[in-house]
Design a protein around this nucleic acid. Structure first.
Lengths: 185, 185
DNA sequence: CACATCGTTGTCACCGAGTGTCATCAGGTA
DNA sequence: TACCTGATGACACTCGGTGACAACGATGTG
């Protein structure tokens, strides 16, 4: 594709991550990000719909992974079991990039604006899981609630995982799932 | 307080609601809202931190109501039961303003930007419930998960309630709570 | 090699959200 | 009357985001 300077997109993401860590999200200007990447503000907005989106490039992949896992769960698995399988599958992806995930999460947590974007991505994820469950034949209301509960477990577990040095995401997930079952009993 | 024209804030909220319904949120300019209210753009931003916030004036009250209900639930009630009580208490507030709630929700649903703001308000609500549960002596992890699950029930129920003409919010809540318990069993 | 083509980037002008600063003006008070 | 106070207006400015068009580099074709 791009013959000029390859990886323009990656360079922008890298520059943004650095600047957000150095001076914070709100204090960083799109023009600054572009300059550090050797590009212009206009080009930045050709790759990303807005300033926040530069941190959320991976969420499409995450969603696909969730959908695939729910779809391919054993046919006789209950709704929550299918979501559980997806959570563990996705955990692997994060374990491999723990350092990046933690850096990114620190930046997001520090900015209300970025937290808003994160929440809507998670909501989209929940909607996708909801749809995937219905495709498995799960009743509509049960699907929505299972998806929402699954996302709650994901949020809670992810937060604990990034804040606990050396923790195991899969273990935290198991823990939270057990907690959910206990709480709803 | 305001001696000039009373209710400046209320007039701005009213004007915004009308304009958002007439031409949509993104297509409405803050200057237009202010003009319809007989004020200036600058004054708008003295009452609201940003354009979206004009629709979320009630969320502080909602949060207080949640906190109070959780706090005052019977001492021997389980965590989820306390949240349940809060949900029913809050349902009353909405039932009284069903028309306004539905109008407002239509506007929010039509705009991704507003949905982001709504999600972060709900997240704040969840955090408040979490804290209120801990204050009751609920274990930290159980508190977080119970609060998150409670918010999920609230979201799902509220959405069903505004879309079903003539439905009873309390009944929908009862339904969703039962569904949650079934799903986690 | 000359030339047309195509996709990426830069330039420029523009709009609207949001903010800082200072002037203004009504009302209450001494 | 003179003074203070709080709400509003006026103005200039920054920055996120977009539309339109020009420039340029790589490629393909004669």
């Amino acid at each position: 594709m791009g013959r000029w300077q390859p990886e323009a997109r990656a360079r922008l993401e890298q520059a943004a991550l650095e600047l957000f860590e150095e001076k914070g999200f709100e204090e960083t200007t799109v023009a600054e990000i572009a300059e550090r990447a050797g590009l212009t503000k206009r080009t930045f907005f050709r790759y990303f719909t807005d300033k926040r989106e530069v941190l959320f490039g991976g969420s499409a992949l995450l969603q696909e992974s969730f959908e695939e896992s729910v779809r391919d769960a054993p046919a006789d698995a209950a709704a929550l079991a299918a979501v559980e399988a997806a959570l563990f599958a996705v955990a692997g992806i994060f374990e491999e990039r723990r350092d990046f995930a933690a850096r990114r999460q620190r930046i997001i947590s520090a900015s209300p604006e970025l937290r808003e974007r994160e929440l809507i991505k998670l909501a989209a994820l929940g909607a996708a899981v909801d749809a995937a469950l219905r495709a498995r034949g799960v009743d509509a209301r049960a699907a929505t609630l299972t998806a929402e509960a699954g996302m709650a477990v994901f949020r809670v577990s992810f937060e604990r995982w990034v804040s606990e040095p050396g923790g195991d995401l899969a273990a935290v997930l198991r823990d939270s799932l057990a907690e959910l079952r206990a709480v709803a009993a």
